[in-house]
Structures are given as structure tokens and as C-alpha cells.
């Protein structure tokens, strides 16, 4: 509580900002999003492959942003943020995954099947 005398600008969490890193994150994410948009709007791939491709784009874009922008790494000052994120990610997956799964099963049993129904399994 007695940090008043230290210049807050010298704090490691200020000093870790990096133009290069932010630029890298920006470029990676933008390129990946452009790619995904292109793939989708030109219907360049069959539906399932397309789905996988844009999922991959999203995944890499998010990783790039989380690493380069949000400084999620294992350095001394970020480790707790990283631990928290790693602990929470399974919960996001569970929330979404189990919900989708249980309702896809429910719909299988209760909804009239429309031929060619695109699945969100």
C-alpha cells in the first residue's frame, strides 16, 4: 500500500506494452479474418471443410490476440492472469459444448427432421 512514492509508469505492467507486439497481433488477426471472410463469401470449400477452415482462422486469431495483445504468457507479472484464463477456458467449453450436445440430442428426439438440416452439433 505504500507504493505512492514510486513512479507508476515504471510499473512492469506499463513497461510491457510493445508497439511491435500489438502490431503483430493486429496483422495476424486481420489477415486471418480477411481469409475467413474470403473463404466464406466465395464458397471456396465444401461446407464442412469451410467450417473447419473458419474455425481454425478464429482459433489462431484469438490465440494471436490473447498472446500479443493481452500479454497472456508465463512471465512473472502475467502468470496469474494466465493461470486464471487456463482455469476458466474449460468452463467456457463445458458451458457451450454440453449445452449444444444436450439440445442436439433433444432435437433428435423431439423435432421433425428436416432433410438436409445443417447441424449445429
Amino acid at each position: 500500500m505504500s507504493h505512492g512514492h514510486v513512479n507508476p509508469i515504471d510499473h512492469p505492467e506499463v513497461q510491457m506494452a510493445s508497439r511491435r507486439g500489438y502490431m503483430t497481433g493486429f496483422i495476424l488477426a486481420s489477415v486471418l479474418m480477411a481469409l475467413a471472410t474470403f473463404l466464406v463469401s466465395s464458397h471456396a470449400l465444401p461446407p464442412f471443410a469451410l467450417l473447419l477452415a473458419i474455425m481454425a482462422c478464429a482459433g489462431f486469431a484469438v490465440i494471436a490476440q490473447v498472446y500479443f495483445l493481452l500479454h497472456i504468457d508465463i512471465s512473472e507479472h502475467n502468470i496469474w492472469n494466465t493461470v486464471a484464463l487456463v482455469a476458466f477456458i474449460p468452463l467456457f467449453v463445458i458451458t457451450i459444448g454440453l449445452t449444444w450436445w444436450m439440445f442436439s440430442q433433444l432435437y433428435l428426439r423431439t423435432m421433425p427432421m428436416i432433410p438436409g438440416m445443417p447441424g449445429m452439433h
Binding site: W101, M102, F103, Q105, L106, L108, R109, T110
Partner: peptide, 8 residues
């Protein structure tokens, strides 16, 4: 009792 079947 929602009815999502045995697997779930």
C-alpha cells in the same frame, strides 16, 4: 426428465 435421451 427433459427427454434428451440416455447418452446425455
Amino acid at each position: 426428465t427433459m427427454g434428451m435421451g440416455p447418452y446425455v
